[in-house]
């Protein structure tokens, strides 16, 4: 009996929470992700950078009312990785 390996990048609570959140929306601001995940800004920042470096999400930095604004969006690569991860998880649960 063989199990599909789980993507180590997604098999982390905060990173999985971020990607799952972005699956349901077109894009989300950093503050919205902080509120939704309950993570600290520092930890979230680190995990978002890891997801960005893997090409799973794109991060846009801009300004609104002179304050920095960070917006995150799931990429096609991120969506494919998420779908594969869910499939693998289902495989574990079915067996």
């Amino acid at each position: 009996m063989s199990f599909a390996p789980l993507d180590p990048l997604l098999h982390n609570q905060l990173r999985l929470a971020v990607v799952s959140l972005l699956v349901g929306v077109d894009s989300a601001e950093f503050t919205f992700i902080v509120e939704s995940t309950g993570a600290t800004r520092g930890n979230l920042s680190v995990q978002i950078t890891k997801l960005k470096e893997a090409g799973y999400i794109s991060v846009t930095k801009s300004f609104r009312d002179n304050y920095p604004l960070t917006t995150c969006k799931l990429t096609a690569k991120g969506l494919r990785a998420f779908e594969k991860y869910v499939e693998a998880i289902r495989g574990y649960l079915d067996k």
Binding site: H11, Q13, L16, A17, S20, L21, L22, V23, G24, V25, A28, S36, T37, Y85, V86, I89, R90, Y92, L93
Partner: peptide, 16 residues
């Protein structure tokens, strides 16, 4: 795996 799936469902629910 069960925790992962529940986390995914909860976050997608929040997004919705």
């Amino acid at each position: 795996p069960d925790e992962s799936l529940r986390l995914i469902e909860s976050m997608i629910g929040q997004a919705k």
